[in-house]
């Protein structure tokens, strides 16, 4: 069974774009990355899957259940971490965790205690006084304490220091090893590349690429770095061109023989052609840098 399956899922906000005919498939037990810059439609997709907003058209199933008709059954088996964790005022961390568990009608005290220890979170602390990162930790414990089979995490590492990020991903890998599906939305490509097995790239509300992280990285595009002089004008398939003092570096997805001809015509003293990392692939798909942080 697929953990998440969308079929032409669309959400429009009048003139504003939401998501358009989204086709997405996440297998059970996968560690799946959902990549896109801010405003691409990642959160809209997640909020639609969780029933916070209703789809304009199309359909989706989560854990085999319809997102509109069987929303409660989905939420019972899903732990969700929003990009910005906001809690009711005047509550202590422990009270928030208990409230979250009570809403699930579960006793999660033991798991909550374990997670708080691992994430160095004080249950007696007042949530209103916590830093952004510590509020994020509260959100993480809320999402994980009931040990749900599906975890949907929206920009989960924002505000966490590198050590905490490592601990957090260790916990996620443990959950994944036990069979949980992890759906991780992020604009930080390196964390998707390090942790996810498959990923989808969303751009302006549409999925523009989906596959294994390895395959995505094996795009036809190559990072070409040239030391010397070469005339690249008119050559199609060049992106992210950076020219400096006798050097040029660019992503190339055009006809390789034409590039080689140009290089042969120029004065090339050194040449490097390498497989780009996911960040560069991302640039390749977007064709611009403005979505990246």
């Amino acid at each position: 069974m697929e953990a998440i399956r969308t079929d032409r899922l669309t959400k429009s906000y009048g003139k504003a774009r939401g998501i358009t005919e989204l086709e997405l498939s996440v297998g059970e037990g996968e560690f799946f990355g959902f990549i896109g810059p801010n405003g691409a439609g990642k959160s809209t997709t997640i909020r639609t899957l969780l029933g916070l907003i209703r789809p304009t058209s199309g359909s989706a199933r989560v854990l085999g259940r319809d997102i509109v008709k069987e929303n409660q059954a989905i939420l019972r088996q899903t732990g969700y971490l929003p990009s910005e964790a906001v809690f009711h005022p005047g509550m202590r961390v422990g009270e928030i965790l208990k409230f979250s568990a009570d809403l699930r009608r579960r006793d999660c005290a033991a798991e909550a205690k374990r997670l708080c220890e691992r994430l160095r979170l004080d249950p007696a602390a007042k949530a209103d006084e916590l830093s952004f990162g510590n509020r994020k930790k509260v959100g993480i414990v809320c999402a994980l304490q009931s040990e749900p089979p599906l975890l949907i995490l929206d920009e989960p590492t924002g505000g966490l220091d590198p050590l905490m990020q490592r601990e957090f991903f260790d916990i996620l890998r443990e959950r994944s090893a036990k069979g949980a599906t992890v759906f991780l939305s992020s604009h930080i490509l390196s964390e998707v590349q390090r942790n996810c097995t498959r990923a989808a790239v969303i751009r302006e509300g549409k999925i523009i690429a989906c596959g294994s992280v390895e395959d995505l990285a094996k795009s036809s595009a190559r990072r070409v770095s040239v030391l010397g002089r070469v005339d690249l004008s008119g050559l199609e398939g060049i992106r992210d061109l950076k020219e400096g003092d006798g050097t040029a570096s660019f992503l190339y997805s055009g006809d390789m023989s034409r590039l080689l001809s140009r290089l042969a015509e120029g004065d090339v003293r050194d040449l490097s052609v390498s497989e780009p990392d996911l960040e560069e692939i991302f640039l390749h798909y977007y064709g611009k840098e403005d979505g990246l942080s």
Binding site: L52, L75, S100, L103
Partner: peptide, 14 residues
């Protein structure tokens, strides 16, 4: 208004 709806309504409470 306080942006707590996302927390409340993503729990299994109709």
């Amino acid at each position: 208004k306080d942006r707590t709806a996302e927390f409340l309504l993503t729990h299994p409470v109709s």
